[in-house]
Design a protein around this nucleic acid. Structure first.
Length: 397
DNA sequence: TCCCGCAAGCTCATTTGGTC
DNA sequence: GACCAAATGAGCTTGCGGGA
C-alpha cells in the first residue's frame, strides 16, 4: 500500500485508495436561458463558471443568477465545501479546481463534488490541484477533443489518509496558501501605489527638487516627434535574431524570446532594436504591453510596435507613455472598434509634458525603484508556488 | 520598399440542441 | 432533468494586398 515520502511524524498508517465516484456524489450545473432576462435580473445567487476557478477558494463569482432561475430551470444550489473540477473550456482550463466558501450554483462545464464526512474538502481540493496534469494527460490521450466527462471524474483515483491526517495536511497547506495570498495582496498594493504616484508625478502634484534643493523649471509641452525618433531607419537585419512580437511582452516584462532565422522571419519582423529603445503597442494600446528595451544582442521587434528612440531619459519617456492622459489621447486617435489601432504618425503628434533632464531622471529612478520592488514580490510569489508544488509532490501519493 | 489595416485563421469559453 | 458534444461567438495574432 502506498504512503507519501513526506508526512507528519505522528502518522504512519497506510493511505487508502478509492475512486471519486465511490466516495462522493458528483453532479453538474446548467446555464439558464440567456435570452430570458428574468434569470439574470435582480440576481443574488453566485453562479460559478470555469473562469471563476482559480485552484483555490471561490469567494465571489463573475455572474449571478436569480431566484426565478432557481425555480424554473435545472440550476440547483450546491453547498459550502463543494469542490469543482472544470470539464470543458479548452485544454488550459481542464482540471482547474475551486472550493466553495458559501453556497452557489454552477454551469454545465463544471463537475461539482459534494462535500462529505469522509474527506476534508480542502484536502480534496489540494489533491486535485496536485493531479491537474493527470487530468490533462488523460484528456489529451483519451479522445480527439480535450474535454473530460462526469464519468472520468467518477473514475478518477483518489489516495487518502485517515481524517486526522487529512485535517493536518489541509491546515498546513492552507497556511502556505495564506502566505501566497498575502504576497499577492502586497503585489497588488505596490502596483496600486505606483499608479497613484505616477498620477501625482505626471500631474505635477508632487515635484522633486534639484540636489541643491532648488526648484526645477516648468515643464514644456512637446509633440512626441519633437523629442524622439519614431521607427528609426533600421540597418540591414542580421541573419538570426530574437523576435519580439505583441505576445512576447506582458505588463512590461519580456516573457517570450523567439530565436528566428532571417529567412523564416514573419513580414512584421522589421525593427532592429538598440539599448534604450521604447516599444509602444500600437494595436489595442489600452493593454499597455509596452517594453523598455535594455538588453544586449540582436533583437528585432514586430511592426505592431512603434519603436521610440530618444536623446532624453528614455526610461522617463517609457513611463510617460503609460500616463493616463497620454493613453486617452492615443485611444482618441485609434481607428477600429474590435481592433483599435493607432498609426505611427498620429502617435508622434501627441503632446506630452517634459521636465528638464535632471527631473526626468529623478522621476524615472523613483518609478524604477518601485518596479524593482514589485518584481521582487512577483519573484517571491513564484518561488512560494514552486516550493508548494515541491511539497505537494512529496506529501501526496 | 515600407507600412497600414483588413480579414483569415486559430484558440478558448459559452451556449444550444440532441439523446438517454 | 442530466449529460454530452457540436456549434457559436469572442478575442487575438499574423499574413498579405494595396497604397504611399
Amino acid at each position: 500500500m502506498a504512503v507519501p515520502k513526506l508526512r507528519f511524524k505522528e502518522f504512519d498508517g497506510d493511505w487508502s485508495q478509492s475512486r471519486i465516484g465511490e466516495i462522493f456524489q458528483v453532479t453538474s450545473g446548467s446555464t439558464p436561458l440567456r435570452s430570458d432576462n428574468r434569470f439574470f435580473e435582480n440576481a443574488d445567487i453566485a453562479w460559478v463558471k470555469t473562469t471563476d476557478l482559480n485552484n483555490g477558494l471561490i469567494e465571489k463569482t463573475e455572474e449571478k443568477i436569480s431566484q426565478i432561475a432557481l425555480k424554473e430551470t435545472s440550476v440547483k444550489i450546491l453547498p459550502k465545501g463543494t469542490v469543482f473540477v472544470a470539464m470543458y473550456g479548452g485544454f488550459n482550463q481542464i482540471g482547474r479546481t475551486g472550493l466553495l466558501v458559501d453556497e452557489a450554483a454552477c454551469n454545465q462545464a463544471l463537475s461539482a463534488i459534494y462535500p462529505n464526512e469522509k474527506i476534508e474538502s480542502y484536502f480534496l481540493l489540494t489533491f486535485l490541484n496536485h493531479k491537474v496534469d493527470d487530468w490533462k494527460n488523460f484528456a489529451a490521450s483519451s479522445r480527439k477533443d480535450p474535454n473530460i466527462t462526469k464519468s472520468d471524474v467518477l473514475a478518477f483515483p483518489l489516495t487518502y489518509p485517515v481524517k486526522e491526517e487529512q485535517t493536518k495536511i489541509a491546515s498546513f497547506l492552507s497556511t502556505v496558501d495564506e502566505k501566497i495570498s498575502q504576497l499577492t495582496q502586497k503585489h497588488a498594493l505596490l502596483s496600486q501605489y505606483k499608479q497613484g504616484m505616477m498620477q501625482k508625478l505626471f500631474s505635477q502634484q508632487v515635484r522633486f527638487k534639484a540636489d541643491d534643493k532648488s526648484e526645477f523649471e516648468e515643464w514644456e509641452e512637446k509633440e512626441l516627434k519633437d523629442i524622439a525618433e519614431i521607427n528609426p531607419k533600421s540597418k540591414k537585419l542580421p541573419e538570426s535574431f530574437i523576435y519580439i512580437d505583441l505576445e512576447s511582452v506582458e505588463k512590461g516584462q519580456l516573457l517570450l524570446q523567439k530565436n528566428i532565422e532571417l529567412q523564416d522571419a514573419p513580414s512584421r519582423a522589421q525593427r532592429l532594436l538598440a539599448k534604450g529603445d521604447v516599444l509602444f503597442q500600437m494595436v489595442r494600446p489600452y493593454q499597455q504591453n509596452n517594453y523598455y528595451f535594455n538588453l544586449s544582442g540582436e533583437y528585432v521587434a514586430s511592426t505592431g510596435y512603434a519603436q521610440i528612440r530618444t536623446k532624453l531619459d528614455s526610461k522617463f519617456i517609457y513611463y510617460a507613455l503609460h500616463e493616463k492622459t497620454f493613453l486617452d489621447e492615443v485611444m482618441n486617435r485609434c481607428t477600429g472598434t474590435s481592433y483599435p489601432a493607432i498609426n505611427s504618425s498620429d502617435l508622434s503628434s501627441i503632446e506630452i509634458l517634459i521636465p528638464c533632464l535632471e527631473e526626468q531622471t529623478k522621476i524615472a529612478n523613483f518609478l524604477s525603484a518601485i518596479d524593482q520592488k514589485i518584481e521582487v514580490v512577483a519573484q517571491q510569489i513564484e518561488q512560494a508556488k514552486q516550493w508548494k508544488k515541491g511539497l505537494l509532490q512529496q506529501m501526496f501519493v
